[in-house]
Computed example of a mutant assay.
Amino acid sequence: MAPDKKILFISLTDAPNGAENVLLTMAKEVGNEIWFLKRNQGANLKIPDHLTACYLSEVSIASGFARMIPKLRSFSPDLIMSTHPYLNAFLGFLKRLGYLHTKLIARECTSVFTRFTGLKKKVYRLIYRLGYPSIDLLVCQTELMKKQLLDHNRFIPDKKVLVQPNPIDFIKIMAGAEKPLINGDARLEFICSAGRLIPEKGFPILIEAFKSIKSEYPHLKLLLLGEGKERISLTTLIEANGLTGEVILKGQVDNPAPYFKHAKVCVVSSIKEGFPNVLLEMMAVNQSVVSTLCAGGIEEIPGIHKIEVNNVAALSNAIKQTLAATKATDVKVMHNYLAQRKPEIFAHSILNALNNLN
C-alpha cells in the first residue's frame, strides 16, 4: 500500500493489554490515526506524538460504537485495521451493508470458538457470519489459531487468512528493563508472572506450584503483575494457603520489564491464549523462562522450559529445574528468535499480504 494512504486503527479501549499493544505497535509503524471507542478508566496505552489518538467516548463502548459510524464516513480512510471480534464483525457488517468502502484488516486476538462455550459461543458464530465475509484480510497469530478459525467458519477462504506472529518492540523492552525497581522490590528475590487477573491466566495453578517449592526457597517471593476481576479470589487463595506476604499482587505495572529482568524465573502459567505477548517480553530480558503450552507456536520457541497446561506438579518441577540450572540458555538463541518479530517486519508483512490479494 502506498505510503500516502490514510490508514486508520480502531480499538475498543486504550487499556494496555496484549491485543491493544499489538495494534498500537502496528499503528506506530504505518498509521495515521488510532481511535478508541472508550477511554480506559485505569492504566492507558502511551501514544507517541506522531500518532493522532481519538477517544470516541468517556462513558461506554456502546456509545463509542454509535459515534464511530458517522465519524467513519467523514474521515474516509483507505484502510482500517482492528483487533477485537465484536469490532471486527461490526466493521465488516458496515462494509457488507455498503456503508464502508474501505479495505478492512482484522486481527484475531484469541481463538473464541475454543475458548468459549454455550450461548457466548453461539453469539460469536452469529457475529462472525454477519460481519467476517466482508473483511479483506484476517490476521492470525499462529497456525493453530488459523486452523481453529477456518474449522469453525467454513465460509472464510483460506487465501484471506495470514499467519503473522506477534511483534515485539525489542528496543523499547530493553530500554525499559534498565529502569530501577522501586518500593523495596530491588531487595527481593522473586519469581515473576504478569497478565490480567482472569481465569485464563492460570494464576491459581502458579500459586499452588509456588507453595510446593516454598520450603526449599524460603526467601523467594512470587510477584504477580496485573489487575483484574480475580483479585479478590486470588487474595483469598493466597490467605488460605498461608502465603500472605509471600505472593504479592502488584497491580497494574506500566513498565514490567525491570521485574522480568531481575526475576529468578519468569513464568507464563496461562491455560489458553491466542499467544502470550508477555512471554516475548520476558525472553527479551531474562534467560530463565518457563511457559505452559497455552497457545500454538510456543512448542517451537527455543531456550525456554515448556510444560503442559493446568498441571501444578509439572509447573513446580519446571520452576525448580530452572532455579537450579547451572548453565543459562544462550541469550543469542532467544534474541535471534525475537529478531524475526520486529515491528517493521510485522507491519509490512501484513500490508504486503493485503496488496497480494488485490
Rank of each mutant, 00 (worst) to 15 (best):
M1H: 12
P3N: 13
D4E: 14
K6I: 00
F9P: 04
G18A: 11
V22K: 05
V22Q: 10
L23N: 09
A27I: 08
G31T: 14
K38E: 10
Q41V: 11
L45W: 01
P48I: 13
A53I: 09
Y55W: 10
E58M: 04
S60N: 05
I69V: 15
K71T: 12
L72N: 09
P85D: 03
S111W: 08
F113I: 10
K120H: 09
Y128E: 12
Y132R: 04
L137I: 11
L144T: 13
D151C: 13
D151W: 10
P167G: 07
D169E: 15
A175Q: 14
E178G: 00
I182Q: 09
S212N: 13
E216N: 10
E227T: 14
K229D: 14
R231D: 05
R231M: 03
R231C: 06
I238Y: 01
A240Q: 08
T244L: 04
L249E: 02
Q252F: 15
V253H: 11
F260S: 13
K264I: 01
S270E: 07
I271Y: 00
F275Y: 06
L279A: 04
M282N: 02
V290F: 02
G297F: 08
I298F: 12
E299P: 08
H305R: 14
H305V: 12
V312N: 10
A314L: 05
Q321S: 13
T322N: 07
L323M: 09
A325I: 02
T326P: 00
T329A: 15
V331I: 15
N336M: 06
Y337F: 15
R341Y: 00
E344W: 01
I345D: 09
S349G: 09
N352R: 11
L357Q: 15
